[in-house]
Design a protein around this nucleic acid. Structure first.
Lengths: 336, 336
DNA sequence: TTGTAGGCGTTATCAG
DNA sequence: CTGATAACGCCTACAA
């Protein structure tokens, strides 16, 4: 039962091992009778081909890779990442691929993990997230000709496959919403400054301000890590300003919730004294008091496009690099 | 650059391919000079062995499998699972293993996924979670002699490797805490009734009641799905009872938060009119108002033990099956 | 239509 | 101590 291989099946069915292989691969030109004979044995023993041998032979593992730049605890509590991973697993499964997830805490180990995944050919392709302006990984992977897609942005935009939210537009929309509510002193809480998402959303923020004749005040644009603690820190900084803002757009819900908590801790009422908009529309939004207004990202769509493009790339159906933009929308709740 | 193999290295170093392999595997009996010559070429070209070939040859992939019985969206928003996955990735990485995560929505596809992972030998071993009393998977895997560990419980307990929280004890402790606060009408909200966790925590609940002479009322023990919606439903049921409870222990934080929300929506004050204890001590606890008292599970410890035992099993260091219990503790906040 | 045989890149067992 | 050589299980020309 344990070490079943095609040659065993062949013996029992009285055919050659090659025929077994052909039957299993639906080769149309095998005699119907033999096919049945082989299939009968295969079924009865529950034979399934060895993925390791197939991987070597076919030069592909049917494994997709995703490396997350988070410590385990940060990953665990970031609903955006959890949702993304879940959606990718789902999509990959539909195409008969599996997902191999790795985490890289330190910058040094990041490098090593990407190298290992790439060079060992353990995975057929990679999905990249959280791109930086001059992303080392992207340069490396393009140069090696390794299949990958980016969820994010990279320049020049037509150089690689990428999928992204309409970050600039979504951010502009969110700020315009705040302006329409009468706010003019609006802060922006970004994630790490190097990330393209941070910058794109900053740009949308600035565009909206400019369009409404509100001067951009650099004191109101802060960068922090994507966590509740990061949001709390940022809010402390904002409140120590001479002229604190009356509204803020945070780059994700964790930051927004952290900021909200810190403000409330100091007796500031939301939304009366401080309006807050988050990003990602995670379930957190409806759990906090008041419920958080947030920009909804279509994570399943992001995952779907990324996965499908990657599989196309892997399977050699080469099309020219494509950039896909997934729309976002504002979900109004009580925090504005 | 692309298709580098040992034979290329061998040619450039002027040795045989076998020697290259030996050097890479730290065979102590290769001449130091040759070793250096080979290593020089390896370094300069950045050669790394092909994992696919190694997998076939060694009959192992260095991949661990985890199948999550959740729909993508449910998985995404369940902090317990996210934390568990993250911790396993972390541990596996330390032993040079990777994690392959799959999700099985329907019962039918579950079966298929386990079969495929097992039979194709795509992964070297499996980590199982959410065991049921008569778990099909476990019977199957034991029978096939496939390496696996269970995070949960299965009987007989010494038949397999398993790691578990002290669920009975933890639950008893939580209920005793509620009793010490003067409650006598205490409800239990379990997850799906077939799961051993659900039953174990129910048992601890009953033991605590019994010990304090409080009769067990089956109307107060409800089973629902692990989600906020599940908790809301359950609370509705509880409140429609003739004698609603004044306190409740929920099997996880999602259920607890759902129950809390529903109670608050109906004007019930927490903890004055209804005390609530959750399970897992996820970050949700400090996000809700009032902050949720919860039983803290040591997820990293669970992941560590499970991963290490599994790797032992895979690598053939056979010890007799072991059951490990990880202690839990109560984290008191404001909801009691 | 079917069988034979070579090779995917490694590792490990032999001789030398 | 090193170099041929044979697997590992599968797929696919090529030959029959």
């Amino acid at each position: 039962m344990a070490d079943l291989k095609q040659i065993e099946i062949a013996r029992l069915a009285g055919v050659s091992q090659a025929t077994v292989s052909r039957v299993l691969n639906n080769d149309p030109q095998v005699n119907e009778e033999m096919r049945q004979r082989v299939l009968a044995v295969v079924e009865s023993l529950g034979y399934v081909p060895d993925a390791r041998a197939q991987s070597l032979r076919a030069q592909r593992t049917r494994l997709l890779g995703l490396v997350v730049h988070r410590s385990p605890s940060a990953l665990a509590y970031d609903p955006f990442f959890s949702a993304l991973i879940a959606s990718i697993i789902d999509q990959a499964g539909k195409h008969n691929y599996h997902l191999c997830v790795d985490a890289a805490r330190t910058a040094r180990s990041q490098r090593a993990i990407y190298e290992e995944l790439l060079r060992t050919r353990r995975v057929d392709g990679l999905i990249l997230v959280e791109s930086e302006t001059r992303d080392q990984r992207i340069a490396r992977l393009s140069q090696e000709g390794f299949p990958f897609v980016l969820i994010g942005r990279y320049q020049p935009e037509d150089a690689i496959y990428s999928v992204d939210n309409d970050n600039i537009g979504a951010s502009r929309m969110a700020v315009e919403y705040l302006i329409s509510k009468g706010h003019t002193r609006i802060a922006y809480l970004g994630g790490p400054a190097g990330l393209t998402v941070t910058r794109d959303r900053l740009q949308g923020y600035r565009e909206a301000l400019e369009q409404h004749g509100i001067p951009y005040d650099p004191c109101l644009a802060l960068f922090t890590e994507s966590s509740i603690a990061g949001g709390m820190d940022a809010m402390r900084d904002l409140l120590s300003l001479d002229q604190p803002p009356t509204a803020l757009l945070a780059m994700d819900d964790l930051i927004a919730v952290g900021a909200m908590r810190e403000a409330q801790r100091r007796g500031i009422r939301i939304p009366q004294q401080m309006a807050i908009v988050g990003f990602n529309d995670t379930p957190l939004c409806s759990l906090v008091e008041p419920a958080l207004t947030s920009v909804a990202i279509d994570i399943p769509a992001l995952a779907r496009v990324a996965t499908e493009h990657l599989i196309h790339l892997i399977e050699g159906r080469t099309v020219s690099p494509i950039r896909t933009i997934v729309p976002a929308k504002l979900v109004a709740r009580e925090s504005v």
